[in-house]
């Protein structure tokens, strides 16, 4: 049996902060890239502000291809890229690269959906008073879609949290790694289920925060 308090202080808390670091940096970068992709998708869609079949299909196909990769394969498949960017393929910093590559297309799809839900008549109204496409996107569509985008981002954070556990299996560290190495591989059910319990609490906190923000912004 492991001494619970030393386990918590020496392993769970440092690994927890690694998990948070991975989740939030990957979410932040994914959100930035995802937003850009979502705007390009929405604008170039055939009913968009400036339809462009080629751009839309290029982005659409690329996103589908990246999203087809099982995450664990993606981590391995892009090791050379990860090394080129971070210098290593081990550790939580290295994990951010595959997490971002998986997260950005996911967020792009969620935000694209939110933007497409913006009332078509509202966009026509904006055009009718002479708003430019840039103003329509940034002053009308995005502000109107904010609550729905927040829901999407909350969903993405939880999904990325799940991915960090998989990244933990191949050397990223974090709570997922604790559950696998100290729990599962060590035949220590207390550690394994304890870590899972910790993750449950974390997901609850993220989801409640997301729901609260949604309610306030709506």
């Amino acid at each position: 049996m492991t001494d619970i308090s030393s386990l918590i202080y020496q392993i769970v808390i440092p690994e927890f902060s690694r998990t948070l670091f991975m989740v939030f940096s990957a979410t932040a970068i994914s959100a930035a890239i995802g937003f850009l992709l979502a705007i390009l998708l929405t604008v170039s869609h055939k009913d968009g502000l400036r339809p462009n079949r080629y751009l839309y299909h290029a982005l659409d196909t690329t996103i589908n291809i990246v999203r087809s990769f099982p995450f664990i394969i993606l981590i391995v498949a892009i090791i050379p890229l990860t090394r080129a960017i971070v210098g290593t393929s081990i550790g939580e910093k290295a994990a951010i690269v595959p997490l971002t590559i998986a997260g950005a297309p996911f967020i792009a799809r969620l935000v694209e959906g939110s933007l497409r839900e913006v009332d078509k008549e509202l966009i026509q109204a904006a055009k009718s008073f002479g708003a430019s496409n840039f103003q329509i996107i940034f002053r009308i569509m995005i502000p109107e879609a904010v609550p729905s985008i927040i829901s999407g981002i909350t969903l993405a954070i939880v999904a990325i949290l799940g991915c960090t556990a998989m990244a933990g299996a191949v050397g990223a560290g974090g709570l997922g790694a604790v559950a696998i190495t100290y729990g599962y591989a060590n035949f220590d059910n207390t550690v394994m289920y304890g870590t899972v319990f910790f993750l449950i609490i974390l997901v609850q906190v993220i989801q409640s925060a997301g729901n609260y923000l949604y309610k306030v912004l709506k």
Binding site: S128, R139, L217
Partner: peptide, 29 residues
């Protein structure tokens, strides 16, 4: 288009803005 105002069946207001902000939107743009 500044010379032509338009209104719609379902009002097309920004749900998250106040009445004031909605009316001010074209002038802001």
């Amino acid at each position: 288009r500044k010379n032509i105002g338009m209104i719609f069946q379902h009002f097309s207001l920004m749900e998250r803005k106040t009445v004031y902000q909605n009316v001010a939107l074209p002038m802001k743009c």
